[in-house]
Every structure is written in C-alpha cells, then in structure tokens.
C-alpha cells in the first residue's frame, strides 16, 4: 500500500511553517530599548549599501575607472566640487563613483565568502560534533590551530599563494582567502553547540525511538544550532568587510581593473596624505566605517534579541523600600 506521506491539502502544513516562522521572529518584533534601535538602525544602514550596490550603474555619476567624460579628461586630485562631489584621484577618476561601485565589490565578495564559509563550516561542525570519533578529533586540532592564527595573516597567505595561480587576483581569490579564514569559526561554534545538544533529553528520546542519525541531525539538532548563525554571520560579515579592505590595502584584494575597492583606494591615498589631500582617503574610509557599523549594529541587535542571556527582561528591577536609618 502506498503511503501518502503528506496530507493532501498543504495548508495545515504551510500554516504550521508560518507559525514556526512567527515564533522564530517573535523576539525581533518584541525587541525593546537599545536592542530595538540597534537592530533597525543597522538594518537601515545595511539596506542603504545594498541599494547602492545593486543600483550602482544608475546611481553613480561615472564608471569606477572612468577618467574622462565627453572627451575631456577629469582634473587630477581635484578638490570636491559640484562636478565631482567627493573630488578626484591622482588617476583622475571620480572618488564618489569609486565609493558607490565599491559597495558592489565589497558586498559581492563578502556574500560569496560567507556562503562558502557557511556551507563548509556548518555541515563539518554538525557531523564532527554529532558523531565524534577520530575524525572529529583531527578536525578539532586542525581548526583550533587555524583559529589561533591571526586570520588576516591566513587570508594574506592564501591570497598570496592563489595570486600565483591561474585564478589570479580577483573577486574569487579574495572570497576564497576570506572563506579559509572564517571556516574554523563556524566549525567551532556549531560543533560545540552540537555537543551540548547531543546529550539533551529530547535528542536521547528521539534516539530511543529509533530515529536515524540523519533524522536527528536534520530535525532536532540543525534548527537549534542554526539559530545561532544569523547574529554570528552578520557580525562576521562586518568583520569580512574589514578583512577584504585590509587585503585590498595590502594589494591582495581586487585588481583595480576589476572593480573599485575601498581598501585599495585608501592605500593609494596614503601617499596623498603627506601633501594634505584628504578626500581620496576620507570617503572610502567613511564608507567602510559606515557599512561595518551598520552590520555590527544589526548583528549585535540580533544577538541581544535572540540570546536569552542578554535579552532584556520585560519587568525592571524590584526596588524595596529603603530601611529606616535606625535599623542600619
């Protein structure tokens, strides 16, 4: 007899999903005070940069490497003016255009890097933590060794080694370098959480009922663990922007012909600074600060609303009447 796995009308199932989603987002809707402000301010700033990145061709007055318009070359190192709101660089390109196009590069690289780091780190952590054994021990030793290492150095070395290869310098190289630097983080977080969950009564109960490891991991462990990921991934995205900019600053990020990158622009601006030219460095730098601040606010806000240790209680402190003087 064929077993109909799903009930024919899908609506009850769908509604349950919707309710689960509602439950999951409840803390966000109930966020209060500072956490709420941080959450929404962060979301607004992040959204602003996403809009900049997506609509860069429409928003930006010029291309990121455009140095002339209508056959007339832009002035070199020109002060901010009506024609060039943020001035021009030594190569005559428009600083504002580079800042806007930079948003696209940064978000693209960081998105690719995070997706790769998550798809490698989370499953590894899940399996390693759940099954244990010699593979787990070997992975832990390797990941701990990597984790202890300054991740900027890991990224530099990876980018350096890859720049020799056919992949060359570019978006993929930068993304791979950042991925390698962050996999250990996700591995550790997920694995440690899985280990604490493995001994939980409800996981034991599932095991006693004869559920296969696959089912247990998928239905009971995964969703518990994955709750931790959004705040970490958001904070990590902030970190990854800084890392990418650092790589660019050292000359291992995006090549200038491939896209605008804020870190690279700041590197160029260091030599301008000694002659008092501020606009080539200030604006790309401010863009980094603003985007990283936005992502951090979003991540911290998420953390504070989702993490029960930090979550603000609904009721305030209970204050007692002060004791009368003579009793002290």
């Amino acid at each position: 007899m064929a077993v109909e796995a799903r009930p024919a009308p899908r609506s009850p199932h769908g509604r349950a999903r919707l309710m689960a989603l509602g439950r999951a987002t409840k803390p966000i809707r109930e966020a209060r005070g500072t956490a709420r402000v941080m959450l929404w301010a962060g979301a607004a700033i992040t959204l602003f940069f996403i809009v900049l990145a997506v609509f860069a061709p429409l928003i930006s007055p010029y291309g990121f490497s455009e140095y002339k318009s209508g056959g007339v070359r832009f002035p070199q190192l020109a002060h901010p003016s009506a024609a060039h709101w943020m001035g021009t660089t030594v190569q005559s390109s428009d600083v504002m255009a580079r800042v806007i196009w930079g948003a696209q590069t940064e978000l693209e690289v960081v998105a690719i890097a995070l997706v790769m780091a998550l798809t490698i780190g989370v499953p590894l952590g899940l399996l390693s933590g759940y099954f244990g054994g010699p593979l787990d021990r070997a992975l832990v030793v390797v990941m701990d060794a990597l984790f202890a290492f300054p991740y900027l150095l890991i990224a530099i070395v990876i980018a350096f080694l890859l720049s020799n290869s056919s992949i060359g310098g570019g978006i993929l190289t930068a993304a791979i370098a950042i991925t390698v630097a962050y996999v250990p983080l996700y591995f550790r977080v997920v694995r440690n959480h899985v280990i604490s969950l493995r001994e939980e009564a409800y996981v034991d109960a599932a095991r006693a009922l004869g559920a296969r490891p696959r089912t247990i991991i998928r239905k009971y462990v995964f969703f518990n663990v994955v709750q931790n990921v959004p705040p970490i991934a958001t904070l990590n995205a902030a970190d990854a922007i800084l890392l990418l900019a650092a790589l660019g600053f050292l000359g291992y990020g995006i090549q200038p012909t491939q896209g605008a990158e804020w870190g690279y622009d700041i590197n160029r601006a260091v030599s301008d600074a000694s002659s008092g030219i501020w606009w080539t460095g200030l604006f790309p730098g401010l863009a980094i600060v603003l985007l990283v601040t936005g992502l951090t606010l979003l991540g911290e806000g998420l953390n504070e609303t989702l993490n029960p240790v930090l979550r603000r209680r609904r009721f305030g402190r209970i204050d007692f009447e002060p004791l009368p003087e003579e009793m002290l």
Binding site: A238, I266, S274, G276, G281, I288, V289, L290, T296
Partner: peptide, 13 residues
Amino acid sequence: ATPVFFLGLMAQL
C-alpha cells in the same frame, strides 16, 4: 568598525 589603516591615515592628516 574603523580599519586601523584608515584611522592611521586620518591621524597622519
């Protein structure tokens, strides 16, 4: 959120 090299550049300026 401030890259150390950006803060350094501004301090230099």
